[in-house]
């Protein structure tokens, strides 16, 4: 299969509400990558989180649905209480498998399955969070030749998640939160230039 696009996956926990509200509105409306996000949150959480992001972003933000085709220019958020997985044919799946590292949705589950589906076309980002979820996923992305980024832990509301990801030795770039969107936009545009 041939891709002419990148896919972005983001894992974030404590402090995520502010971090996502900072970076996601910085992507333009016509940004060509799909963005798939696991933010740890309560299963009972109503749609407030998704609606709030959607009102602030240029790209469309929605809660991921089971067996939904991943489309360019959309931001998908994992529903509370479900794991979000990527199928090889670029469809999203949900599951209620056991929590991984006490988390459901789990960043590791999203990253691992996305790495297998998108290989070198995947960009994985770990943002603020107070646990180690996502570190295994970062290793998976690297093993499948994807690109990995962590938020600079000194500027993260909770540093443990980026620190843990960086400690795997599989993170390519450590960036300030505010610099992440322009870095990725530059990267994706360069890639399209080559196509």
């Amino acid at each position: 299969m041939k891709y002419d696009f990148h896919v972005l996956v983001i894992g974030v926990s404590a402090g995520g509400f502010r971090a996502l509200h900072t970076i996601l509105p910085m992507f333009p409306k016509d940004f060509s990558c799909p963005v798939i996000i696991v933010q740890h949150r309560m299963a009972t959480d109503e749609n407030f989180f998704v609606e709030s992001l959607n009102s602030k972003c240029n790209m469309g933000v929605k809660e991921a649905e089971d067996k939904e085709q991943i489309e360019a220019g959309k931001i998908y958020i994992a529903p509370g209480g479900y794991h979000l997985l990527v199928e090889k044919n670029h469809i999203l799946s949900l599951s209620v498998d056991e929590p991984v590292s006490y988390a459901r949705p789990s960043v590791d589950v999203l990253f691992e399955t996305a790495a297998q589906a998108f290989g070198a076309h995947l960009i994985g980002i770990i943002l603020t969070g107070a646990n180690c979820d996502g570190s295994e996923g970062i290793k998976n992305i690297k093993a499948n030749k994807g690109l990995t980024i962590a938020q600079d832990p000194d500027t993260a509301e909770a540093s443990m998640m980026p620190v843990s990801a960086i400690a795997t030795g599989c993170v390519d770039f450590v960036l300030l939160l505010e610099d992440i969107p322009s870095f990725i936009i530059g990267l994706v545009e360069d890639h399209h230039g080559e196509c």
Partner: peptide, 9 residues
């Protein structure tokens, strides 16, 4: 079965 979850199990 959906492949991603089955593969994990």
């Amino acid at each position: 079965y959906a492949g991603a979850s089955l593969t994990r199990r």
